[in-house]
Nucleic acid binder design. Structure first.
Lengths: 223, 223
DNA sequence: TGCTATCCTGACCAAATGGTCAAGATACGA
DNA sequence: TCGTATCTTGACCATTTGGTCAGGATAGCA
């Protein structure tokens, strides 16, 4: 997955380097397509998404989309690629030197903000997991697993130092992911149950507050 | 959604009542189809699922499937119908007379058991929510919303009586749903991160323990 | 002003898939 | 045994859709 970040376009380049304007066109079009694809994959799923709809949303004819991304699969992979990067970056606050309470609160808030600002990304990822993660299994068992093991060690260190109630760090992460991403992935359920049309800033603030309170007190980090 | 539970079959009956054996055949076939459909919808999503695959999994020819369920949509609705019933039943432990700690622990354990024993059901529901809940919006905003409002009142009662730390009861439910269902919906991620092939009883026990500990202590229900 | 590489697009195609149909097979009451 | 309602199924069809192609437009360089 994490390979070949730069050559997600179609044709293998061989001749002279492309000129500035051409590069700009390419970048612009690729960006539009990726954005449209993320939205369509999020709302329709991989199978439900059509390249025609993605192209229309991107404002280009379908064959032009296929010029930049040979297959729907390749486009999907590219969308996932961007999302995985986001995913890895979110854990940055969890480091041994940090103060546990502040670090965990920051993590919860970062994940919640991600649910608010990038709901499509979260949904595409959720959909991928839901269907067995065929395209990201390697990533999950590789880079991601290593990262989580790493962060789990940090948590264990805090516990050993008596700064945190004992808990299984991996399952702690699973709960945190679930509790924060649910506001993006299952917003349809949450809005319906709350009787709202959509979730606003206040709702996300309330959500972050509830999760933080529950988790922090649950870990013995609050009176 | 919740209407017409009995006539999910195709032809509108008009003549004499069907005989015992016919009824048995029908029940048997409908059950097989529903079971196969739940599995296929869970792993492929609505769009990705094909009636051919469902029929094959049910061990019948495709036209026979269409004899019992006219359209893929109708079959999907029937599958969801069963799942929604399950969903509503799970909250039974949350009643005003109950002891908060035991009631919440029972709820968490019930939801976790549901994730373990009916992962396909959970996934179908998750997939439906993920894509905007087109088929269950009515249910969510109706029966389910009323139920949750009801249970939220119970929680608020406990809080008012000083038996629980103050918390937004709706968001508490969102966290509980997310934390328990994640083990069914996103098992691909959890197994990959844990480096296991699949989740066993011990994993679910550990998960339930972690969630319980976190939530109960988070609500001030544990030393 | 040519020449080349990149970009754009209308028209098209093959495969997949939801659903139909008509001709049986089966159960069972009369 | 006969008649009817239900059930079964091979063959078939219309539509959708991922992907192709050939020809044209555009940018940039010599």
């Amino acid at each position: 997955m994490r390979t070949e970040k730069k050559k997600r376009a179609t044709k293998r380049r061989s001749g002279p380097p492309p000129t500035a304007k051409k590069l700009a066109i390419r970048r612009e079009n690729v960006a539009r397509i990726l954005e449209a694809a993320e939205a369509v994959f999020a709302t329709r799923g991989f199978s439900g998404a059509t390249t025609a709809e993605i192209a229309e949303r991107a404002g280009i004819p379908k064959p032009n989309l296929h010029y930049y991304f040979r297959t729907k699969q390749a486009l999907y992979r590219a969308v996932l690629d961007d999302i995985l990067t986001l995913w890895l970056d979110a854990t940055s606050s969890i480091v041994a030197e940090a103060e546990p309470k502040a670090a965990l609160r920051a993590y919860i808030e970062a994940k919640m903000a991600y649910s608010r600002t990038r709901p499509f990304a979260s949904k595409v990822f959720a959909n991928e997991l839901l269907h067995g993660a065929p395209a990201v299994k390697g990533f999950l068992g590789g880079a991601m697993r290593r990262l989580v093991d790493d962060k789990a060690k940090v948590i264990e260190g805090w516990i050993a130092a008596g700064r945190l109630q004992p808990i299984d760090p991996h399952h702690l992460f699973f709960v945190l992911w679930a509790a924060t991403q649910t506001y993006a992935d299952f917003d349809a359920q949450i809005t319906a149950v709350l009787g709202k049309r959509s979730l606003g800033e206040a709702d996300f603030a309330q959500a972050a507050e509830t999760v933080s309170a529950l988790v922090l007190r649950g870990l013995g980090l609050k009176a």
